[in-house]
Nucleic acid binder design. Sequence first.
DNA 1: TTGTAGGCGTTATCAA
DNA 2: TTGATAACGCCTACAA
Lengths: 360, 360
Amino acid sequence: MNEIPIPGRGIPTIASGGPPEAPPFPANVTLSDVAQAAGVSLAAASRALNGKEGVRENVRARVQLVADSLGYRPNRAAKNLAGGRASVIGLLLCIDELQNNHYVISLLQAFAKAAEDHDEGLMLLTDSRSPSKVVENLIRDGLIDGVIISAIALEDRWVEELLDAKLATVIVGAHPRRSDVCAVDVKNREPAKLVVGHMLDTGCERVAMISGIAHRVDAARRLAGYRDALLERGLVLDESLIFSGNFTRGAGWELCDEIVGARVDGVFCANDQMALGLHDALQLRGLSAPEDISLAGFDGTSLDEFRGLDLTTVVQPFSVLADTAIVTLKSLVDRKGAPREQLVQPTVHWGSTTRRRSAE
Amino acid sequence: MNEIPIPGRGIPTIASGGPPEAPPFPANVTLSDVAQAAGVSLAAASRALNGKEGVRENVRARVQLVADSLGYRPNRAAKNLAGGRASVIGLLLCIDELQNNHYVISLLQAFAKAAEDHDEGLMLLTDSRSPSKVVENLIRDGLIDGVIISAIALEDRWVEELLDAKLATVIVGAHPRRSDVCAVDVKNREPAKLVVGHMLDTGCERVAMISGIAHRVDAARRLAGYRDALLERGLVLDESLIFSGNFTRGAGWELCDEIVGARVDGVFCANDQMALGLHDALQLRGLSAPEDISLAGFDGTSLDEFRGLDLTTVVQPFSVLADTAIVTLKSLVDRKGAPREQLVQPTVHWGSTTRRRSAE
DNA sequence: TTGTAGGCGTTATCAA
DNA sequence: TTGATAACGCCTACAA
């Protein structure tokens, strides 16, 4: 065992004490450097640092100390190659959605933060090539431990291929058919019912809905919530008040005429984007919310709109969603199993586009 | 040399012919598998596949063929560990900018595509932690070959730290002070001048400008272009017509009153977001472009706006920007050197918010 | 032009 | 509880 510091590497011994003289970026210090400095074997150092058992507590503490003082950082490539985790997760999104879909952007943002919190790298995967190509790469490249996919931002065939592969996968949102996959989603039905109910309870008599893309699970659930609210109050369901949208701002904008023509006094939109589009169109017609029409959305992605607009909306807990998804994925990677479906509770932001309860 | 397929790995020999029986994802085939199947050594196979010299052409062809038929994919982690390139690049952005900054989103989108074209992985790096922390990780983790940073989407200290590190770095945009770094940017001054000139040449007599964040290079250059256009036509520069904005939609919205009060008949905005905000505000006042006020922006991020709005704007060639940046970074990683500053030519989209040339 | 062998930094499997 | 030692998959001198 050669205890002499390797020339050129400049490994400070513990005795020489204190933090390194702060060269901006000390030469890479490897596990073997740490082991040497701590006077233990490579294996012991590895175990100590990874929290595995089979190390005396005082040894573990010493190794940890040395590692810290040396500024040791494990090399992820090596870690990965050696069969450990890569500590990198993939996030698969529809690249084109990024442009105008605020939900996707918020998701991306949340995952960026959550990944950092979990000390995981975040690899951005996109769908511009064929699914199988990407999936292949994912699995074989050995660069990531698992994938998180946004169901709603991806064509079905993508999701299918991914799920059929044996890569650890967590889906954010719900899959229309498959239940053999871990999914993390926000509750859709309940809060939709809550918001619509609120409109009905604060003076609205004809509440319309702009629904989302028909075949999507979240859209269906929000629509169900709308129905729930009406039925619960013994109101008849007027199908002509359900306008079919597509989650885009343009949809809300274009449906304005029809909606105004239907003489409604409240509109629940399946997402904020459509609510915003509708709001703009209404504004141009000199109509405002909630005076003329109560307005509510879903997602909470428009809270920071620049103008006064303070939309009532169901706020997705993006950070919780991301965090949960990552925890689930890690658990999957470690073969610890994970719950099939986890529904996260959103909050409702009661903005100024709906009336306040008279009781308040 | 054992030519017998290793049990459990199921490596199809060439003789057994054709593409594998399409198990969705054949067991990982390694370089050594390829070498074995091709009847050459590991080293030879490596050389052949990596285009290094010292391999007979026919051997190279054969290895390539075998590799393809086996569906060989190099393991990036191993490649990286062995000192080769990781084939992963980092993209460092300000995570909060993602929310409302269309430029950043477009950039991200472009890089996602470009990275895929170059067969590079894209690691999303964010600025939520301290710079040095991230930089450290980048350098030591050994997962990425270099970083691309968006200058305008990052605090200066970030850029500084990154540049001071010895990691291969390309900056998209311009750095206010440092010139010792490779930068890729769009031309700002010329096209700004062109657009403003167009407004002046098509009947506008008082053209205002909403500038961007003062200390940013791109903002300064666009402003310079505005000045150029006026001066070139021998017009006096009315400083009161330069309104200071901050690149947000809200800025355009809020400046509307002032601008209308200044009795201008044209406004050049330092980016599209401000132009959109201004447009909305004008529309609410019953004013429209170009009848009342000619309007132009910069970036080209609003072309797909949902309503009729067809804004005249300088369109950034995002894909070219991304491609150039990646090529430059790769060249840097390979220590081949690269040009200090590369300016990419944008195009101008002549929309309906400015008048047409009378000649047309 | 080829092949052999050593090493990249970790983790994991064994003996001790 | 420890510590050698063999993988992991690849690249690259160096030797043949």
